[in-house]
Design a protein around this nucleic acid. Sequence first.
DNA 1: AAACGTATAAATATCATACATTTCGCGCCC
DNA 2: GGGCGCGAAATGTATGATATTTATACGTTT
Lengths: 244, 244
Amino acid sequence: MFQPIRIARASNGIIYQIKESIFAGDLPPGHALPSEKELAEQFRVSRITVRDALRVLESQGLIQIKVGARGGAFVASPSADPVSESLTNMLRLKQATLVDLVEARILVEPHVAAIAAQRATPDDLAAMERAIAAAREARASGDRYFIPNSVAFHLALAEAARNPVLLFAVNSFRALFHEALSALLPADDMAERAIADHQKILDAIRARDGERARDVMREHLSYFSERVGAAGTPRNGRRRPATG
Amino acid sequence: MFQPIRIARASNGIIYQIKESIFAGDLPPGHALPSEKELAEQFRVSRITVRDALRVLESQGLIQIKVGARGGAFVASPSADPVSESLTNMLRLKQATLVDLVEARILVEPHVAAIAAQRATPDDLAAMERAIAAAREARASGDRYFIPNSVAFHLALAEAARNPVLLFAVNSFRALFHEALSALLPADDMAERAIADHQKILDAIRARDGERARDVMREHLSYFSERVGAAGTPRNGRRRPATG
DNA sequence: AAACGTATAAATATCATACATTTCGCGCCC
DNA sequence: GGGCGCGAAATGTATGATATTTATACGTTT
């Protein structure tokens, strides 16, 4: 019937106001906020309260705080890192498995590849080409740790879809996925297969063949999820019991 | 070659230790942490430093802080909300458009519906049923603002897919989408159509017909994106120029 | 006996002040 | 002209105090 009277913390109001200024564009990325002392004066609160607010904004990736002279709080550029970290936390708490992650990727990334085939600009194609070339070179010089190269390709591809929402989602998933995988050193044939797959996907995108790009990507992800042992058949009844 | 010596904030160490305790299961959800004073003594730092750490943990959704006697920090139950908020923030920073959001939703949610058809538990079905019933009731009582009811259904459906990663993604997209839409008061026929669509989707899920659920969901989203004017054909060349 | 009010205690929220540390920039000195 | 040191500016941390919130126990009233 009635709504509870919520007496928020003072820092919440500060967080809200700063957020609104950022989202409204009054504070573009890179722009400096006033110093803690000045903020405290403007908001008519103590430095402590201001700092509480800044800490929260920082942990949400909205600002970056630098110490020292000419330091202070600066509006951050959009980055998937804090999101990925929060996501990592949640998934660890929920005991989400690699299977969940792989399932999400198999669901999203093939379609992203298909969209990229329709929209990729010459710059995008060049970026993907560079990623593949770098992977080849690294492999030729004996670097068996090919994951960073693989990441570069997948990111370039997500860029090519020209949709920031999808880019961000793909980014977040990938960061988490590779963190989980960083322990494993891949077999040599996996690197070779990865490079070959990436090349095939790029070829399909160049040919503007969305369906082929999608199918190859799906194959690609399925193969690696099996090799990694996550589960080739993610819908096989290994689910956790419903918790309500 | 060499790694930089990082002199982190003291609060970072506290955050790390508490996180590890939570993830290790030493601190299950609902468990209370020591008071700020006790934590300050244990970590040999001031209360300020402890509070910085607690603020960050709270904003990441790992703990919940209650004031008053018997108050303090309690380990939170896993929730996608804070994570979704982070992603929503980033998308706002990136100035994602409605078109981008609609595209992402049309890409993800139909497949989520298909998965839900395979995995929905009786509880999940009941939750979706409740959401639809609530929407019907609200509409019968003259409440034309049906968006919250629609949200409830879509969330229940995402829950039914039993994949926390997908739940998180759907959650984040929807939050931003509805924020962008909150200005528009929907037409009456839209509410009716939405309820009917939801019912159809639920029927398909009950029948364990994933393909039908997927198709109806896709239709559902397409219809509303057109009505809302976001763009029925998201790939129509209105894209922003490549930024490199 | 149940309901209401009050006192008390425990915890967080906030304030004020001081000191420590980091970092940039200026200027001196060689 | 370049290295060096000093100082200013900003955040990081500490200390102590006060304000506010909230649960609990206890007493009073009806």
